[in-house]
Amino acid sequence: MFAALEFPPLSHIVNWPGLFGTDGKLYEVNKVVLVYFFAVILTALLFILGNKRRLVPSGAQNMAEMSIEFVQNEVIMPTMGRDGLGWTPFMLSLFLFIFFTNIFEIIPVIQMPGSARIALPMVLALLTWVCFNVAGIKHQGLGHYLKNSLFPPGVPIALYLLVTPIEFVSTFLVRPFSLMVRLFANLLAGHILLVTFAVLSAGLFTAKWYAVFLPLPAIGLVFFVAFEVLVSFLQAYVFTLLAGVYIGGAMNPEH
């Protein structure tokens, strides 16, 4: 009955042709690369415009101060404590960059989250992996860091046969993998959700009897766009929060 509502294959909604005649070239610029450019520019703009330091903030400075306060109070203080405040620039740029790549999911004309291609989450997860390992080695020394992360204290010696491989896998392999998959799959799912409702709404133009029910998807689409704003914020928050937990755990092994 709904045969007219053909859902496009996945490759049609996440693969984009190259713009500016760069199709297939090594330096191909497609929509997703454009989103990365925009996100980098927006993050840099917030850093530059927020640097005016007037007593009564306005415009971009307001925004910058709000995001700095958010990252410091909600991400760094609960996870890393006061020692972690030196990580503010890294965490802030991570948060803003992920948020801006995500929010392009609902910006008209573009409507493609940069994080829905695996490359970006992968790079960010590897960056976080490198950061928490370097933080651990720097604060505890290589030997202590490995000892604390592979041989957690307070475990009977015989159990280390079981605990050490599990700790190794969960700390050094599963952490970056789950960071990557979480960001990627959430945004891909959101994008597919929006496409699904958009395809259903396009069915409004049909003249069949079931067109009576089809305003519902259009209303749903509006609500899901609002929902995706929440998701793109939340995923940026969760990614930074987990990066904070990992780095904080590597810095102070007691907690």
Partner: peptide, 27 residues
Amino acid sequence: AGMVRTTMFLGIAFVEALALIGFVVFF
């Protein structure tokens, strides 16, 4: 409430990862 909320989001992130791995395996 603030501490609980932070911990809740952490927990959600860990639990949700399983569903999301399922979502990727689905594709």
